[in-house]
């Protein structure tokens, strides 16, 4: 990665272009084309995004409809009359606060702890040399290729033996670090210049300090992305909590919601209301975290 300042540009024409770039002022001619491109891009994106949001809107509308409105064909966009009965049922039939707290405790713990360990692991693999490093890393990657469906039973028996069935820890501990996370962080930490680490060492920082104060702030976009993924996966996980948690008061949100469904009949309104309740916290987390995508390396990488 080039850290040297760009060589001075001498041609007057180039200098003029550079001047415009510097000022970031919209001009006629060259800038108009740029604007036009922006409008076209925004239009295309608007179409794409409506296709993306469509089902979500449908879900929202359905959660407010009565049973006979839901199955109307063609589907109507406005629920008439709108009803909150499905949400009311969620709160009536489930110990909602407790269940929400269960999910929140487990998910935030997993996210916080695993972000730390995964970035530490990613940093070690990206910036240190040690014997068998690549072999070890390949072995870790290899474990990703084993479908969790076959390791679930042994993992369950292991947790049972450790006395962790039906506990928060039983859900948190297995997710403490993940190969996916280590791999993701490693790829990003590659692009952090070694000189930053070296200067930290020269300043007498401890190795952990270098990681915490120099490396972590540098990979905020990646941490934000990984944080969202981890949060999302833990928040939506169904099968593992289902077999680990044996007590209804320990159920997480997806498990508790699933108990409301019948064997044959599906209550679509209830299902959609439940799905919304699951999505909203993740969407909120995403909206806050996504701002981080534009922070970080942009400034510091070129100091």
């Amino acid at each position: 990665m080039s850290l040297a300042p760009s060589p001075p540009v001498s041609t007057p024409a180039r200098a003029a272009v550079r001047q415009r770039v510097r000022e970031r002022e919209p001009r006629f001619g060259w800038r108009t084309r740029e604007r036009l491109f922006g409008v076209v891009l925004a239009t295309v994106m608007l179409i794409v995004v409506s296709a993306m949001i469509g089902p979500f809107i449908w879900m929202f509308v359905t959660s407010l409809k009565t049973a006979d409105q839901i199955i109307e064909t063609p589907p109507t966009l406005i629920p008439r009359p709108a009803t909150l009965q499905h949400f009311a049922r969620l709160f009536d039939e489930l110990a909602f606060l407790r269940i929400f707290l269960n999910s929140l405790i487990v998910t935030t713990s997993i996210t916080a702890v695993s972000l730390f360990f995964n970035s530490l692991g990613g940093y070690t693999f990206a910036k240190f040399n040690f014997p068998y490093k690549n072999l070890l890393f390949m072995a870790l990657i290899l474990t990703m290729m084993v479908p969790m469906q076959v390791t679930m039973l042994p993992a369950f028996l292991l947790l049972k033996e450790l006395g962790l069935l039906n506990t928060y820890l039983g859900l948190i501990l297995p997710a403490m670090s993940s190969v996916f996370g280590i791999f993701l962080m490693r790829q990003f930490i590659y692009s952090i210049p070694d000189s930053l680490i070296e200067s930290g060492r020269l300043d007498g920082c401890s190795e952990l300090r270098i990681f915490w104060s120099i490396i972590l702030p540098q990979c905020r976009p990646a941490l934000a992305a990984l944080g969202i993924f981890t949060f999302m996966a833990a928040w939506q996980d169904f099968l593992f909590p289902l077999i680990i948690l044996h007590d209804e008061s320990m159920y997480t949100l997806p498990v508790a919601l699933a108990t409301l469904s019948g064997q044959h009949a599906t209550d679509w309104g209830l299902l959609m209301a439940g799905s919304l309740v699951v999505i909203l916290p993740i969407a909120t987390v995403f909206m806050f975290m996504q701002r981080r995508f534009v922070a970080g390396i942009t400034l510091t990488g070129m100091k």
Binding site: V49, I53, M232, S275, V278, F286
Partner: peptide, 8 residues
């Protein structure tokens, strides 16, 4: 664009 990812 991220919404479909989170939608169950």
């Amino acid at each position: 664009i991220f919404l479909p990812v989170v939608t169950p």
